[in-house]
């Protein structure tokens, strides 16, 4: 009886050590300790891979996962299957953490070792290269379109990146000719009218001052304020033009995101 009580007390004291190994961070620490004590580079590399896999299993594509991926020398893997699996997972993690260069590096290495023509691989390639090399991204999209025409929408990302409104100069010139016209043409009629009113009042004020023989005042108000209002009106047109471009771009990006999420729902990219 006494023996069992002692065992029970001791077991209760030690359960923390026995069960806590299951916890994610404990597991990471355990692997890091093993890697630290390890004298062989290959074995150490295996432990790093195990740590990276742990992040993958727990679906945590974080910067810490990227740190582990960077520590791994995939040339030290004993079998090609592990190398291929790592390169794929590292590509996905890099893409999810917005690490553009590592993503392109891992993905190109993956394709070099294991030429993969699956929809999943092309889709990942097009997403990775969209921010890295638009020509390569387009080639991936073209290959996807050959497989299934519904993938044509993937190129929307490129359209969003390349989108810009045309004829900005025309809007600026129109504002220079008739103050407020550029702002009105940009869709902001109220700001355009206010601009026209302020500039007209400033011109009138200068005219009245000259009529009253207040030449210095006319020079001062004309030089300081009229110029400021006039240039301000042109600058306003420019900023309104940019704002409209940004709004349009955001709208396109939202639509593109919706289309892409639809594609990714149909053809999800999984860790391997």
């Amino acid at each position: 009886m006494l023996k069992n009580i002692i065992i029970l007390i001791s077991a209760l004291l030690c359960t923390e050590k026995v069960f806590s190994q299951n916890e994610f961070s404990q597991h990471l620490l355990m692997l890091e300790e093993k890697a630290f004590l390890c004298t062989s580079d290959t074995l150490r590399n295996d432990f790093y891979l195990q740590k990276f896999d742990l992040y993958v299993q727990h679906n945590k594509p974080t910067n810490e996962a990227m740190l582990e991926a960077r520590r791994i020398d995939y040339h030290l893997f004993r079998d090609t299957a592990s190398m291929i699996r790592f390169l794929w997972n590292a590509s996905v993690t890099s893409q999810l953490t917005n690490s553009v260069n590592p993503a392109a590096h891992y993905y190109s290495s993956y394709q070099e070792i294991n030429p993969d023509s699956s929809v999943e691989a092309y889709l990942l390639g097009s997403l990775i290269y969209m921010d890295f090399d638009s020509a390569v991204a387009r080639s991936f999209v073209n290959r996807l379109v050959i497989k299934d025409k519904s993938f044509a929408c993937v190129s929307c990302l490129q359209e969003v990146a390349n989108y810009s409104r045309k004829h900005k100069g025309l809007y600026l010139i129109s504002s220079a000719l008739v103050p407020g016209l550029g702002s009105a043409l940009n869709g902001n009629v109220l700001k355009g009218t206010t601009s026209l009113l302020i500039n007209s009042l400033a011109v009138y004020a200068v005219y009245v001052l000259i009529q009253s023989n207040l030449y210095f005042n006319a020079f001062f108000w004309g030089g300081a304020f009229l110029t400021k209002f006039y240039i301000g009106n042109i600058k306003l047109t420019g900023s309104l033009f940019d704002q409209k471009e940004e709004r349009k771009k955001n709208k396109l990006a939202t639509n593109c995101e919706l289309m892409l999420s639809g594609v990714l729902k149909q053809h999800p990219i999984f860790y391997r």
Partner: peptide
Amino acid sequence: SFVKHLSEVKLSKEHFTYISQ
């Protein structure tokens, strides 16, 4: 020496877990 290693590699999560442990 292990703590030093964790600090050098900047493994903050493992570092914290180790100290807590």
